[in-house]
Write a protein that binds this DNA or RNA. Structure first.
Lengths: 104, 104
DNA sequence: TGATTATATAAGTAAATCATTATATAAATG
DNA sequence: CATTTATATAATGATTTACTTATATAATCA
């Protein structure tokens, strides 16, 4: 059982199309910022700002590995959100269609 | 499997605290506008406008019975939303604490 | 150390959103 | 049919949000 405020904050984070797409992406694998930028064809600052919001809201994890910062989902402990995310369309084909190491 | 756009639209509707509370309310029983106004201690136009958005987004049903308009949930066919709604805190006690027929 | 690549942050702006006030419609009732 | 009650709509203003451009930080490598 979650507080209304807590749920509405989480849903607000998920309700943006760009952020929701990021979540759908990360469902398949962790990704660095440049991978996500390539995939979304969005600007780097735009993606960074969305990632920060998701991170601050506790929906994703962040981990730097040398010059790259990798992001991954953090929803295992949030069943009510996990359901939503699990119903998002698979991004697998589009991920595979990307050139590997596009941003290295 | 839902389109990203469709999910983000639904989540945007749910991400407002007032609308999410309305959904939490309607989980227990259908209610007319004046009941909801009483419960939320919000203005009548404010509630009407939120109800309209939820109705337009397909999340609730509307039914007029003489001078009252009753609203009820319409999420049985949307499992990814139902999970979220089912995790909302129960409003039962607060509903029972309301004077019955407050607005008749 | 200087250049390059990856990412973050700041500032500015345009668009979207929510609440309020005022008014309209709709049904019931004396 | 005029009044009252329930609800909807319209117009307005304030706040929030998302994106852009410009710049800062951080790591790597020549």
């Amino acid at each position: 059982m979650q507080a209304i405020e807590e749920v509405s904050e989480s849903l607000k984070l998920l309700s943006d199309k760009t952020r929701l797409t990021i979540m759908a992406l990360l469902r398949h694998k962790e990704m660095c910022v440049c991978d996500i930028v390539d995939f979304l064809e969005a600007s780097q600052p735009n993606v960074s700002q969305h990632l920060k919001k998701l991170k601050t809201g506790g929906l994703i994890n962040e981990e730097r590995r040398s010059q790259w910062v990798y992001y991954s989902l953090n929803v295992e402990d949030k069943p009510y959100l996990k359901q939503v995310i699990d119903h998002l369309p698979s991004m697998e084909e589009r991920i595979n269609a990307m050139k590997p190491q596009d941003c290295t």
